[in-house]
């Protein structure tokens, strides 16, 4: 389960980010605890973890906002302690909290970022126009953004991180507070950047990590407790498949028969629910049929990343 990224595959040339025993302490409290990571160029890497696990702290260290207490990290070969200025030229960050200039309109906010990164005026305006489309703010581009709704501000805040067209993009909970349409648009935008940039994304929407990430690290109390592709995480999980079968004419004897096959069986409200690591659907259905049970519906659930997450981090999160 706790597969550490193979050293041989990840030589320096191909790494966008490498952390070496990265740690951050606040007094006695350890927020980030000896993280060793290698993120390849062009990889979309997602960091998951309960509240307070140390995701934002890790991103702050990697984006040169915080110095690590111990260890170090390299971004595109530059050390965060020695060359923060060079790193800042090639990264961009969308902070967890919305970060926009309230008295400017959306256009001005985007152009501001272009100017700060020293882009040509023409290039700035071209990118700002593209991102404005993504923002989907019909008729409100010229309005001061302090009057926007929370989600609109949020979208702008993320778009601002894309103005500099960075080599490494950090997105700290990018889709927090977005409506389903906006979230979908944001996913598509991130998909579109996949492969072209290295992206580090934190999120609490596990289906988002599942859909977007090449690899996922799960952080708990500052430590990486799992790191793998979403599929491998699910495959290796102890989480269970479950099947729910709707029927009206099942007898107690038949239920008993199923209970002999699987230990986790619940029957209530005309629905029989069976859970196991591996279910033999064929066998279950055959057994029901042979006992003349009328099957009205079947639904099946594979272990999701949510299950894996809860399994690894414990139901109570960090507490």
């Amino acid at each position: 389960m706790n597969k550490v990224f193979n050293k041989e595959n990840g030589d320096e040339e191909h790494n966008a980010i490498q952390t070496i025993n990265l740690s951050k302490r606040y007094g006695d409290f350890v927020a980030v605890d000896g993280i060793n990571l290698e993120i390849k160029k062009g990889e979309l890497f997602s960091i998951l973890g309960p509240n307070g696990a140390g995701k934002t702290t890790t991103i702050k260290i990697l984006s040169c906002l915080l110095l690590p207490t111990e260890g170090t990290a390299k971004i595109m070969g530059y050390d965060i302690k020695e060359n923060p200025q060079l790193i800042k030229e090639i990264i961009d960050v969308s902070p967890q909290e919305t970060a926009i200039a309230g008295h400017l309109n959306a256009w001005e906010n985007l152009v501001l970022m272009g100017g700060i990164y020293g882009l040509e005026k023409k290039e700035t305006e071209k990118r700002a126009r593209e991102l404005l489309d993504l923002l989907d703010l019909p008729g409100r581009e010229k309005e001061q953004v302090r009057k926007y709704s929370g989600g609109m501000k949020r979208r702008l805040s993320i778009a601002m991180a894309m103005m500099s067209d960075p080599q490494v993009l950090f997105l700290d909970e990018p889709t927090l507070g977005l409506d389903p349409q906006a979230r979908k648009a944001m996913w598509e935008k991130i998909e579109g950047l996949k492969g072209k940039k290295t992206i580090v994304l934190t999120t609490h929407y596990l289906e988002e990590a599942d859909a977007l990430a090449d690899r996922i690290a799960i952080l708990k109390a500052g430590k990486i407790i799992a790191i793998d592709t979403p599929d491998e995480l699910k495959n290796n999980s102890k989480s269970m498949q479950s099947i729910a079968i709707k029927t009206k004419n099942i007898s107690d004897d038949v239920v008993k028969g199923i209970k002999e096959m699987y230990s986790d069986v619940v029957f209530k409200a005309n629905k029989i629910e069976i859970k196991a690591r591996k279910l033999n659907v064929d066998k279950i259905v055959d057994y029901l049929r042979s006992n003349e049970v009328n099957i009205e519906g079947i639904s099946m659930k594979e272990p999701s990343l949510d299950d894996v997450f809860l399994e690894l981090t414990g139901e109570g999160g960090n507490q």
Binding site: K88, P95, E97, T98, A99, I116, Y117
Partner: peptide, 12 residues
């Protein structure tokens, strides 16, 4: 607000 934080990650 996180605005200054964002600025501090830029090359300024």
């Amino acid at each position: 607000s996180a605005f200054l934080l964002r600025l501090l990650t830029t090359p300024l």
